[in-house]
Simulated assay, not measured.
Amino acid sequence: MTTTDPDRTTPATTPARVVEVRYFAAAAEAAGCDAEQVDVPAGTTVGGLLDALVARHGPALRDVAARCALLVDGVLHRDRDEQVGAPDRVDVLPPFAGG
């Protein structure tokens, strides 16, 4: 017989935050879209977010993302181990050339 104990609590899990991810130039071409809404769990790192985006869009984005800068709410993040926190927007920016 299975019973439930109302006094026993289950640890709360932090829900994912829905974040707007915007892609520019070659990143948009590789992703096949200019922007999308992505669930970003608490504690996600820059590397984890990039890996999740690559898993969604495939090897073309992997190749571009390796050279991209990531702006998290307008702040540059390059360290793959850095946590992204709870952003509202992430911009994936490939290198730009111009003159």
Results as ranks from 00 to 15, higher is better:
Gly32Gln: 05
Leu49Ala: 00
Val40His: 03
Asp51Leu: 08
Asp63Cys: 11
Asp39Glu: 15
Glu36Gln: 13
Gly32Lys: 03
Gly58Lys: 01
Ala55Trp: 07
Pro59His: 10
Val46Asp: 08
Pro59Phe: 07
Thr45Asn: 01
Asp39Lys: 13
Pro59Val: 06
Ala42Gln: 14
His57Ala: 12
Asp63Asn: 11
Gly58Thr: 14
Arg56Glu: 03
Asp51Asn: 10
Ala42Cys: 13
His57Pro: 13
Gln37Tyr: 07
Pro41Trp: 00
Thr45Asp: 01
Val40Leu: 09
Gly47His: 02
Val46Thr: 12
Arg56Leu: 06
Leu53Trp: 08
Gly32Ala: 05
Val46Asn: 09
Glu36Phe: 13
His57Tyr: 06
Leu53Pro: 02
Ala60Trp: 06
Gly47Val: 02
Val38Gln: 13
Val38Ser: 11
Gly43Cys: 04
Gly32Pro: 00
Gly43Ala: 06
Ala52Leu: 03
Gly58Leu: 02
Val46Ala: 13
Gly43Leu: 02
Thr44Ala: 04
Gln37Asn: 12
Gly47Glu: 02
Ala42Met: 10
His57Thr: 14
Asp34Glu: 15
Gly48Arg: 09
Val38Glu: 12
Ala42Arg: 11
Gln37Asp: 05
Leu61Trp: 05
Ala52Arg: 00
Gly58His: 04
Thr45Lys: 01
Ala60Tyr: 06
Thr44Val: 05
Asp39Met: 14
Leu50Asn: 08
Asp51Tyr: 06
Thr45Met: 02
Leu61Ile: 07
Arg56Gln: 07
Val40Gly: 06
Ala35Arg: 15
Leu53Ile: 04
Asp51Glu: 12
Gln37Ala: 06
Ala35Cys: 15
Pro59Lys: 08
Gly32Trp: 01
Gly48Trp: 03
Ala42Val: 14
Cys33Val: 10
Gly58Trp: 04
Asp63Ser: 13
Leu61Ser: 10
Arg62Glu: 05
Asp63Gln: 13
His57Ile: 14
Val46Tyr: 04
Arg56His: 07
Val40Asn: 07
Cys33His: 12
Asp51Cys: 06
Ala42Pro: 13
Asp63Lys: 04
Gly47Trp: 02
Val54His: 08
Asp39Ser: 14
Val38Pro: 07
Gly47Lys: 00
Arg62Tyr: 09
Asp39Tyr: 14
Arg62Gly: 10
Gly48Gln: 07
Leu49Cys: 00
Gly32Arg: 04
Thr44Trp: 00
Gly47Gln: 01
Val38Asn: 11
Glu36Asn: 14
Arg56Asp: 03
Arg56Ala: 10
Cys33Tyr: 12
Pro41Thr: 00
Pro41Leu: 01
Gln37Gly: 05
Leu53Tyr: 09
Val54Gly: 08
Val40Ile: 07
Asp39Gln: 14
Val40Phe: 09
Arg56Tyr: 09
Gln37Glu: 07
Pro41Ile: 01
Ala35Phe: 15
Ala60Lys: 04
Val46Ile: 11
Ala42Ile: 13
His57Leu: 12
Cys33Glu: 10
Leu61Asn: 10
Val40Thr: 03
Leu61Met: 12
Val54Lys: 09
Leu50His: 04
Gly43Tyr: 04
Val46Ser: 08
Pro59Asn: 12
Val46Pro: 07
Glu36Leu: 08
Arg56Met: 03
